[in-house]
């Protein structure tokens, strides 16, 4: 029995480590390529390690593209999306969960209906709206439609619903109004929900491709994602420089993830349970 257990464990480890290799190898190859010269990268059979580590590839990315601006745009757009969405959705979610008002059910049903529609469905009219507002090719265009989220409202509502009603009654007796109850009492209690939504939104906002690709046409207004797509279209593709760009584009979120891994993983797990 013991022996069997041991073999079983070894098999588990082999499978898991195999999985790790498959997961990590593309990243390793990306990093190694990003330090090679174009010739080293295109030699057959491929050289694993660069002879001289070409740090200059990273500088070339900044020559080819306004990469600093793209960082800035992505950070602004992701930052505003996350904070805006968390704030607006939590307000609405609180009201849906805790306050009785006429028409609530109808509005909430409409909201659920929006949840069912595939996101690509909205893109075209959203684009035309931004166009009518004269906001094409501006930074606000990147985040405005994403400030509002049916999913976020729905997710947070689940959290607010789970809180006991006595809390509110006590606060109301102390003379708190709805806003005070929301901001002072309820918000701290749903912190984990807010973090979860924030992380899901951040993941989306940082990585989204189609929307930024459509609304912003000049490189200076692009996000990193669209910048990578732009770089790939260049006539002669310099693979090491492209990989250097990719490394730099994914790094910030990876670093955040390493620091807040617990919150990231719990946030995702929670969306599965509460959604």
């Amino acid at each position: 029995m013991k022996r069997k257990q041991k073999i079983f464990n070894i098999v588990i480890y082999v499978v898991l480590i195999g999985g790790i290799l498959v997961t990590v190898l593309p990243f390793v190859w990306m990093i190694l390529t990003s330090f090679k010269t174009q010739n080293e990268a295109t030699v057959i059979p491929p050289a694993i390690f660069p002879k001289i580590w070409q740090i200059s590839n990273y500088g070339k990315v900044f020559e080819m593209l306004p990469f600093g601006k793209m960082y800035f745009n992505t950070i602004i757009s992701a930052g505003v999306t996350v904070s805006g969405q968390v704030l607006l959705c939590s307000l609405a979610a609180y009201a849906f969960a805790r306050i009785h008002f006429p028409g609530k059910n109808i509005i909430f049903t409409c909201l659920l209906a929006v949840l069912m529609v595939p996101s690509s469905f909205f893109i075209l009219p959203q684009y035309q709206l931004i166009q009518k507002m004269g906001l094409l090719d501006t930074i606000p265009a990147l985040f405005i439609p994403n400030l509002f989220s049916a999913f976020g409202t729905f997710l947070l509502r689940q959290f607010f619903m789970a809180l006991p009603g006595e809390l509110e009654d006590a606060a109301r007796l102390d003379g708190c109004n709805h806003f005070q109850i929301y901001s002072r009492i309820m918000m701290p209690l749903v912190r984990s929900g807010l973090v979860a939504l924030g992380i899901l939104t951040l993941r989306f906002a940082w990585n989204d491709l189609m929307w930024p690709l459509i609304v912003n046409t000049s490189p200076k207004k692009m996000t990193l994602s669209a910048g990578l797509a732009f770089m790939q279209g260049q006539h002669i593709t310099n693979y090491p420089v492209m990989m250097a760009g990719a490394v730099m584009a994914v790094l910030p979120l990876l670093i955040l993830f390493t620091i807040f891994q617990k919150q990231f993983i719990e946030g995702v797990a929670m969306s599965g349970i509460k959604g």
Partner: peptide, 18 residues
Amino acid sequence: YFIPAVTMGAAVAMVWSW
């Protein structure tokens, strides 16, 4: 295992095309 989930789709596509 979670790392690919926080990696930009555009970058993933780029690396795999390479």
